[in-house]
Design a protein around this nucleic acid. Structure first.
Length: 656
DNA sequence: ATAGGGTTAG
């Protein structure tokens, strides 16, 4: 038999013939690598195509193993082409590289660069840089020349663990070995630099690429957005000639990540107008923007939107989880629960969002029950966010012992290391019930360096329990960590004021002045049935219904007085006369918003008020009693959390 | 197959 013969017959050969033919050829010494023949034969690829499509449809390991047996029976276990595909499939199903995929690769006598690359890529996906590099080393030792995809896989590996310097070396080698930079390899390089946080180098690659596609653009746009530089992201986006749905989505979620929900909604509108249809990812981003806006008008629109594009909301785990978060943040935890219950697939995001939603609304028992269900009845593992939810729930319900227990088991039973957020919850938990010394101890003995949040929680607790001594300790550290956050100074002011220490109040005022800080003006707003927003600020009484609002408020105060309402004058951090304090209190913006809502809405309608600052003690009591005398449900969303007032009680249990 | 994805505190 000659090589000419074999080529002549190759059109009628099947893979088995080819492999055995190759073996014969090797025995005859005609070729020394069957891949030169069998792997490049178009015919064999056709023969193997059904095998490949079966591989692509594999959804679990047993299926692949079955196919692998088939491969062996067919004598294809020496085909780099087939084994490469097999390894890819295994990688995509997250099967660890060792031992199985690695073994079937080792069994191939004449590996080609693509086979090596698939294994390197496998290690990259599994974030195992050292094995990926070792694999590359043996490849070079065997004298196999890497292809550009090899460097893509290596760069991916470097990116997965953030090894910038090693990645740079591969970057240099890529040019040396493959001569030019394809769009594909260039995109991988951009991705690598982005993952390492080196935006400048990423941009340099982008600028120097001979050609770019929409993926190159989107990578850089998303990187700018993630780094908080929305201006650059927008600049790039405007220059992008053909914007596809992924690029638009990068912008929408970019705005969401940078807490610019209005811009996100605007961007979404623009996308629609330009004729690009959103997909699930876009809708999830939009829903997240709605959550930040905290308004049910947008919430309804998001749901409508998703339905319009045919996304079965409750089947999609990301959309469902986003909806739970959105409804919770819009004050409609009942609807959030409905979504949760109707979802078929749930993951840790779904549960964490639901637990947080319940905790946010003061439904601690349900939150804890849900957590218990999650860890005993499902295989879903709680993560650090889940525990933030659990601890928040404990703190809202004043469940000190249970909270402590949870905090301990978080680490011991579930292997979740406590972060500053968890310590913040613990300080909050202890501080709220007045155990300020214990809270202080937690801060002083925590395993990570305390941040502003921890000290802020302590200072907040001092405000509730009127403890200027601990407050001074907390404030000192807090002002070092967050010198420009005006809210911190106001908090300390409130502590001094509530303790009647007017010298202290003056000292803080002077400090604020020295730093040139400006007090954030309070504003409350409600949205009417037409979607119109009505804003209320304390000094600005020029709302068209101002007189009516005043009248309604006065009348309401009288009715509350009957129930024993006394204005809480310590809520006013000014050394003013009692009459002045009373007058200041009635001008608090959430009270104006309440009066407006009482006038303009029907009796069975839940009143929803948003506020940009934290509600004061007096307003809280006021709302509680108002819900009793008016028989209305009042929801106030301040900058901290939800308060749902009903029949004289608040969902937060008066701890906030 | 290299891009965009939802939950975190005072």
């Amino acid at each position: 038999m000659t090589l000419a013969h074999s080529r002549q017959f190759s059109t009628s050969l099947n893979p088995i013939n080819i492999t055995s033919l190759s073996k014969q050829l090797i025995q005859l010494g005609r070729i020394n690598n069957p891949n030169t023949f069998s792997d490049t034969t178009h015919h064999q690829q056709l023969q193997a195509s059904s095998l490949i499509s079966n591989l692509n449809n594999c959804t679990c390991l047993p299926q692949i193993k079955q196919l692998h047996c088939h491969v062996i029976r067919q004598g294809l276990d020496q085909s780099c082409y087939i084994i490469t595909k097999l390894i890819r499939t295994l990688t995509n199903l997250n099967v660890p590289m060792d031992p199985y995929p690695r073994r079937i690769m080792n069994l191939v006598q004449f590996p080609n660069p693509f086979l090596y690359t698939s294994v390197i890529r496998g290690y990259a996906v599994q974030q195992n840089l050292s094995e990926a590099v070792t694999m590359y080393g043996s490849m070079r030792r065997e004298g196999i020349t890497p292809v550009s995809f090899t460097f893509s896989a290596l760069l991916k590996a470097c990116g997965s663990v953030g090894d910038l310097s090693l990645g740079r070396q591969f970057h240099a080698q890529t040019f040396k070995l493959s001569g030019f930079c394809s769009v594909y390899v260039g995109n991988t390089m951009i991705g690598f630099y982005v993952k390492c946080g080196d935006l400048e180098s990423a941009r340099k690659v982008f600028d120097e690429m001979p050609e770019r596609d929409v993926i190159s653009w989107t990578e850089v746009i998303a990187a700018y957005a993630k780094s908080g530089d929305m201006e650059s992201a927008e600049g790039m986006f405007e220059r992008l000639p053909k914007k596809d749905v992924v690029a638009w989505t990068a912008m929408v979620t970019g705005f969401v990540q940078n807490a610019k929900p209005l811009e996100a909604v605007e961007c979404f509108d623009r996308m629609e107008r330009s004729g690009v249809l959103p997909d699930e990812v876009t809708v999830a981003g939009f829903i997240s923007a709605c959550a930040q806006l905290g308004d049910s008008k947008y919430a309804d629109r998001a749901v409508e939107m998703a339905l319009k594009f045919g996304y079965s909301l409750r089947d999609h785990v990301v959309i469902g989880s986003a909806l739970i978060d959105m409804y919770s943040k819009c004050g409609n935890v009942e609807e959030a629960v409905k979504v949760f219950e109707s979802m078929k697939n749930k993951n840790v995001f779904t549960y964490s969002s639901m637990i947080l939603g319940l905790a946010m609304h003061g439904r601690a028992k349900e939150a804890l029950d849900l957590f218990h269900y999650m860890v005993t009845q499902t295989t879903i593992k709680p993560n650090n966010v889940t525990f933030v939810g659990v601890l928040t729930a404990c703190s809202h319900a004043g469940l000190v012992d249970q909270g402590r227990q949870m905090f301990a088991s978080m680490h011991q039973t579930f292997g979740v290391e406590p972060t500053r957020e968890h310590y913040t919850c613990m300080v909050d938990l202890l501080g709220r019930v007045g155990r300020l010394q214990e809270a202080l101890e937690v801060v002083q003995t925590m395993s990570v360096e305390p941040h502003g949040g921890v000290w802020g929680a302590l200072l907040g607790a001092c405000r509730i329990h009127k403890d200027p001594d601990v407050a001074e300790i907390a404030a000192k550290r807090l002002f070092e960590l967050e010198p420009d956050v005006i809210g911190n100074y106001i908090l300390l002011c409130n502590v001094y004021a509530s303790a009647g220490d007017w010298d202290g109040v003056l000292r803080v005022r002077r400090l604020i002045k020295e730093k040139g800080l400006k007090k954030t003006p309070a504003v409350s707003w409600v949205v009417d049935e037409k979607g119109q927003m009505h804003k209320f600020s304390p000094g600005n009484m020029n709302h068209p219904m101002s007189d009516k609002i005043q009248g309604t408020l006065e009348e309401l105060v009288e009715r509350l007085n009957v129930l024993g309402y006394q204005p809480d004058l310590s809520s006013v951090p000014y050394n003013a006369s009692d009459d002045e304090k009373r007058s200041i209190l009635t001008r608090h913006t959430e009270k104006l918003a309440l009066a407006f809502s009482l006038i303009t809405t029907s009796r069975d309608c839940t009143i929803k008020i948003m506020k940009n600052l934290r509600m004061c003690q007096d307003c809280h009591t006021f709302m509680r009693l108002a819900s009793e005398v008016t028989g209305r449900v009042i929801i106030v969303r301040d900058n901290m959390r939800f308060h749902r007032f009903r029949s004289g009680a608040c969902s937060c249990g008066d701890f906030w």
